[in-house]
């Protein structure tokens, strides 16, 4: 499932491997982007995948070294990385 997405479009948070880092570039969903912005996920901010829940979903990311955010794979998929 992840492979397909990787081929067609940009790197997103949902494709990060455990421990891997990325820098937020943009969001692909408007309603979701507001929530993410309010929770401190800003373009230019570094994120790192910290933990994956059992069954692979949701995931926990570290946002800007500041705090830990848990989100579902489909939510993580709207965050595009540079």
């Amino acid at each position: 499932m992840n492979l397909n997405k990787e081929r067609m479009s940009a790197r997103t948070v949902s494709l990060l491997k455990k421990g891997e880092k990325g820098i937020i570039k943009s969001f692909t969903d408007r309603a979701m982007s507001l929530k993410l912005l309010e929770m401190g996920c800003l373009p230019g901010c570094e994120v790192r995948l910290d933990a994956i829940a059992p069954f692979g979903d949701p995931i926990c990311i570290n946002v800007g070294g500041n705090y830990s955010l848990s989100l579902r794979l489909n939510e993580a998929a709207v965050i595009e990385l540079e």
Binding site: M39, Y67, L69, S70, E75
Partner: peptide
């Protein structure tokens, strides 16, 4: 409506 999770993990 769509379902959200997005949750801050407190230390």
């Amino acid at each position: 409506e769509p379902s959200y999770f997005m949750l801050e993990m407190p230390s």
